[in-house]
Design a protein around this nucleic acid. Structure first.
Length: 298
DNA sequence: CACTAAACCTGGGAGC
DNA sequence: TGCTCCCAGGTTTAGT
């Protein structure tokens, strides 16, 4: 579901609700989500037990972000690593429903929480946080401390964050030169710049006026400069607007981001280009739908 | 090693 | 109403 602006907006919206609070109890309905991060995951009853018991009475100190991951820091030095993948949500509610408070299931609906996709439920000393995930690609993992993540190479393959000061035009120019694949593939790959997904990769290519199927190494310095500016400005603006709520993405209080109204190409194949009026083209790159304007982008 | 399809899932919408 | 097929903000893994 979410790309950098959505994860960052969720993090910022969640922070005031949960930082400083203590976890009173945890219920895990789908053990596979807390078992491991791989594609094929076997549910572990032991991990479920650990997750439900170890977090009790732990205080939440902070929430940080690395790429599209969120990290919840506890006073025990333990951390919870959350990746929402396509349809994950973290939603906070001031008051838990009777199903949580009483410990017995009640009828579930989509409008009230928990719903049938509320797979992990954190009851805090005040309020409840739900991890919902329709497709269950996401994961919520408990680690003894933050260092383990780096030791295990969890963030080894990821490049620089567009909001990081180290992400510069010079860095991007040098990095793109080495890449043999299409620009869109490189942007989705996370290895040079992290945080872009299918929406912002297409939007950045459009704003930079570069065709997404161009070989990354073929970009001229002037084009890389335009791409760099596009990435930084689009991501910054999207964060400021709470991200793009296209389908499942919502913030901690259930509210929706408004950047979708700024989209020029994503989800607009066949519609007239906002700049030249010609119909936007569609193409599959890296098995992902890619939309662009063949007149405006070179 | 670098790059690219396939896999992991459920649900909503289009077409019949 | 219902059925099939296609598609979906992302990695991870298997395969070339």
């Amino acid at each position: 579901m979410p790309e950098l602006p959505e994860v960052e907006s969720l993090r910022l919206s969640l922070k005031p609700y949960i930082v400083g609070k203590t976890i009173q109890s945890v219920i895990v309905h789908k053990p596979k989500l807390v078992s491991s991060a791989g594609t094929v995951r076997t549910p572990s009853e032991q991990k479920k037990r650990e997750f439900e018991t170890k977090l009790v009475n732990k205080k939440i100190l902070d929430i940080t972000r690395v790429a599209k991951n969120m990290i919840i820091h506890l006073d025990s030095e333990e951390i919870i690593l959350v990746h929402l993948k396509m349809t994950g949500q973290l939603v906070y509610q001031e008051q838990g429903s009777p199903a949580i408070l009483g410990g017995h299931p009640i009828e579930l609906s989509e409008s009230t929480l928990p719903n049938k996709h509320s797979h992990i439920i954190f009851t805090l000393n005040e309020g409840v946080m739900y991890y919902n995930d329709i497709r269950m690609f996401g994961y919520v993992l408990l680690y003894p401390n933050i260092d383990i993540l780096y030791q295990e190479g969890h963030f080894e393959a990821i490049g620089l964050d567009p909001l990081d000061n180290n992400f510069t035009y010079e860095y991007l120019l040098k990095a793109l030169k080495k890449k043999k694949s299409k620009l869109k593939s490189v942007l989705l790959g996370q290895s040079i710049v992290t945080g872009l997904g299918n929406i912002y990769a297409d939007e950045a290519c459009f704003q930079a006026r570069i065709l997404p199927y161009r070989l990354a190494s073929s970009l001229k310095p002037k084009e890389v400069k335009a791409l760099y500016n596009a990435i930084v400005s689009i991501i910054s603006k999207a964060v400021a607007m709470g991200g793009s709520s296209v389908a499942n993405y919502i913030m901690a209080d259930g509210s929706r981001g408004t950047y979708a109204r700024e989209h020029n190409v994503y989800g607009k194949a066949g519609l007239p280009c906002n700049v030249c009026g010609n119909p936007l083209q569609k193409m599959i790159i890296n098995s992902r739908t890619t939309v662009f304007c063949k007149f405006c982008q070179k």
